[in-house]
Design a binder for these strands. Structure first.
Length: 273
DNA sequence: CGGGCGGCCTGGAGGC
DNA sequence: TGCCTCCAGGCCGCCC
């Protein structure tokens, strides 16, 4: 699941398949996700044509005609796939969005950390889920200067800083470790002790890692799949993530695993200082 | 206020 | 085989 690249891969795979289709009805089998699925959801989106798919941070935005947007967040274990209308309900399938093309968008999420909601398209940015989100790392405006500015007056370890969605969005636990490795920065280094030049390298590394993960179809460690069910292949390119004790792909030193903020961090003790 | 931590859930992996 | 513990890619809210 799903950091920025996985959500972007999902968006790209679904968009050509569903734009122009119409939502006929919505079936909710289980409302208890991270937040309860609104009882008004079905009424709000039924009958509307799908105009466009966008992504903001790790949220998939399905813009519908009439200024409404259906929003899906995959949490840790969510999947959104396009299946035939009458495909049997799978375990942990909580919401089905039935389309006029006789297919349905199936939202499945065993751990139920995901989210399904509808908002007015023009009020998304002001909504509490989006209001505090930082910059998109693959768009203009994300660079070393921005990171350096955001780090001013802080002392957090750089790994935690990269995971803070108020600064930059979409970078989760896998890609934070990978970007730090590519930039040669130790995950525990305080953001107060990173030079302007290093911030530039780190911003570049974040972009490079995310872009190549998208090209490879995302990372499938356990169960990520795009809208058609196809897995990603970036896991074979992972330099440090989930490779404790294995040789660093650059220098051969054994990859280390530490815990920061209750999450695993992987790094190369020789390449990252 | 920044920063660290626990909690939300279920399933799979690995140890005994 | 079965039972137990630990761990998982996100995010929020509580606490100091």
């Amino acid at each position: 699941m799903p950091e920025l690249p996985e959500v972007e891969v999902l968006r790209r795979s679904l968009e050509p398949a569903v734009v122009g289709d119409r939502i006929e009805r919505v079936r909710t089998w289980n409302r208890s996700l991270r937040e309860p699925v609104s009882r008004g959801l079905a009424k709000r989106i039924s009958g509307r044509r799908i105009e466009r798919l966008r992504r903001r941070a790790k949220y998939l935005l399905i813009d519908l005609e009439g200024g409404t947007t259906l929003i899906v967040h995959l949490g840790m274990s969510g999947r959104l796939t396009l299946v035939p209308e009458r495909a049997p309900r799978e375990p942990h399938e909580h919401v089905g969005v039935f389309l006029s093309s006789r297919r349905r968008l199936r939202f499945r999420d065993p751990r139920r950390f995901g989210l399904v909601l509808a908002l007015s398209t023009d009020r998304i940015e002001a909504d509490r889920h989006f209001r505090h989100l930082g910059v998109e790392p693959l768009e203009d405006g994300f660079d070393g200067a921005l990171l350096a500015r955001a780090a001013h007056g802080r002392r957090a370890p750089v790994k935690s800083f990269l995971l803070d969605g108020r600064i930059v969005v979409g970078v989760g636990n896998i890609y934070a470790s990978e970007a730090l490795h590519l930039a040669g920065v130790h995950p525990k280094r305080s953001v107060a002790r990173i030079s302007a030049e290093r911030w530039g390298q780190l911003a570049g590394a974040v972009r490079t890692i995310l872009a190549s993960a998208i090209e490879q179809g995302g990372t499938t460690l356990n169960d990520f799949a795009d809208g058609s069910g196809a897995p990603g292949y970036f896991q074979v390119a992972l330099a440090v993530y989930d490779r404790e004790g294995e040789p660093c792909t650059r220098c051969g030193a054994a990859v280390k695993r530490i815990v920061q903020g209750n999450r695993s961090t992987f790094y190369c003790p020789r390449c990252q200082r």
